[in-house]
Write a protein that binds this DNA or RNA. Structure first.
Length: 456
RNA sequence: GGCCGAGUGGCAGAGUGGCCAUGCAGCGGAUUGCAAAUCCGCGUACGUCGGUUCGAUUCCGGCCUCGGCCUCCA
């Protein structure tokens, strides 16, 4: 079996061949920590988490870095508005981001480098770029000179003329070329800044990722991921810097970009204001349901988000957990996901197809008669869940979730109902069931005469 | 304007040149005291107009509609 990934750079699916199979490297652009992450921000974290899990199952060592941008104009603005140091803002939202992602079943990456911890590396890289004639200093800024890199534009598929023609930004007078972008910019005394050969300043956005990749993963990485909107200018610029700083070496072998979440077909974004934060969503739905919903569409496709999306995901997971609950006391006999599921994921992370395989497993488990088959199917289902990062909880806990349950009371009610049923007083039995139902508990009469319960 | 993507059943959403996605919801049946759960079954789904083909939702072309990037943005 082989792993196939779609590469934005070549615009086709390619066989994934790591440079060093003993050390696979992946870098994904993480959050700028100045606010709560919305569910759209969570998509790359979840998508690349699935890829991380898949890679870990195939290769002995996977180095996965996801950065935190903790120096940025928006952070400065937030800090100023609240009258606190930027660290107060960035520490708070870094912690919240990690907690949110954890609730979504996202494994911690191998590395979580932050920009402010890598200023010397950024300065060093800028100096290399200047020494090689790819960058120049002007009025306290250091600019990357785009015409110095002939490959510029290959990732986003646009040529310089297009960009200049469509440019909506005003061209700063000190730019040698309208397409040149900033590597270092001056800071005013009231803003965060670091000493540099070009005066006190702060890094441009793009250099941050390139410097951290170089520092932790090396000159060439296997996979670089992020949201679709980062292709231009962010990744195009990263590619230019990284390639030029390393004398033309490949910067990243595979570029992967996830599509957007939409609300009513329109991109979810902070500027449009049509966002819903993970923090808010978690108040009404388990993180695993949000994760399932996020994986419900192929990662490169848009995904329309609504309350209905979450409700459907929750209902589907409920069903799977009910099936697991039925066999919870049987010891699993397999730890391998079905081939069809693995193959779906290995075909450019086809999570919807993988989820269809999970549904097939659930159905088979519900139909299984003998204990051996149940044990095997349970193992396969759990293994499949591990790959996708779902179905790892105790079914009883999942089904009882979010309710303040007085178990003794329920058992008492069930017993009372059992006596009523025995006496064929069904009216009373139904009345009791109604009372239990009113408390949010659903009861179920099993073929063997027992009665079990679960939260609705 | 340039570049890119998408239009699939009530909803979400895969995929394929001829046969089945899958889940949620709905309907019918089995089961049940009744339910719930579960199982079985059902619904003339592939924007539009042409072309290629024995056959197209799937390939090609036109058209319509929608979205994304080109500015911070996952």
């Amino acid at each position: 079996m082989s792993l196939i990934l779609y590469n934005t750079l070549t615009r086709r699916k390619e066989l994934f061949t790591p440079l060093d199979p003993g050390r696979v490297t992946m870098y994904v652009c993480g959050p700028t920590v100045y606010n709560y992450a919305h569910i759209g921000n969570a998509r790359p974290a979840v998508v690349f988490d699935v890829l991380f899990r898949l890679l870990k199952a195939r290769y002995p060592q996977v180095l996965y870095a996801r950065n935190t941008t903790d120096v940025d104009d928006k952070i400065n603005a937030a800090a100023k508005a609240q009258g606190v140091p930027i660290r107060t803002i960035t520490d708070k939202f870094t912690a919240i981001y990690r907690a949110d992602m954890s609730a979504l079943g996202v494994l911690p990456p191998t590395l979580e480098p932050s920009a402010t911890e890598h200023i010397p590396q950024m300065i060093a890289m800028i100096e290399v770029l200047m020494a090689k004639g790819h960058a120049y200093a002007a009025e306290g800024h250091v600019m990357f000179h785009v015409p110095s890199f002939t490959g510029y534009g290959q990732l986003s598929g646009r040529n310089r003329d297009d960009m200049i023609a469509g440019a909506r930004v005003e061209v700063a007078p000190f730019k040698k070329d309208p397409a040149d972008f900033v590597l270092w910019k001056p800071s005013t005394p009231d803003l965060p800044g670091w000493d540099s050969p070009w005066g006190r300043g702060r890094p441009g956005w793009h250099i941050e990722c390139s410097a951290m990749i170089e520092a932790h993963l090396g000159p060439t990485i296997d996979i670089h991921g992020g949201g679709h909107d980062l292709i231009f200018p962010h990744h195009e610029n990263e590619l230019a810097q990284g390639t030029c700083a390393h004398g033309g070496k490949t910067y990243a072998q595979v570029w992967m970009h996830n599509g957007f979440l939409t609300m009513d077909k329109e991109k979810m974004s902070k500027s449009l204001g049509n966002i819903v934060t993970v923090h808010e969503l978690l108040k009404n739905a388990p993180g695993e349901a949000l994760r399932w919903a996020l994986l419900g569409a192929h990662y490169r496709q848009p995904l329309d988000w609504s309350d209905e999306t979450v409700a459907q995901a929750k209902a589907t997971l409920d069903r799977a957990y009910r099936a697991l609950g039925e066999v919870w006391d049987i010891e699993a006999k397999s730890n391998t996901a079905p081939t069809a599921l693995t193959e779906a994921l290995e075909d450019d992370l086809n999570t919807p197809k993988a989820m269809a395989e999970i549904a097939a497993l659930v159905k088979a488990l519900n139909s299984a008669k003998d204990a051996d088959e149940k044990a095997r199917l349970k193992g396969e289902l759990l293994a499949a869940g591990t790959l996708l990062g779902v179905l790892q909880q105790d079914p009883e806990k999942w089904l009882a979730k979010d309710l303040d349950i007085d178990e003794a009371w329920i058992i008492q009610m069930i017993e009372a109902r059992a006596s009523a049923r025995k006496a064929r007083d069904f009216k009373e039995a139904d009345r009791i069931r109604g009372e239990i139902a009113a408390a949010g508990i659903e009861i179920k009469d099993n073929p063997d005469g027992t009665t079990t319960w679960a939260a609705k």
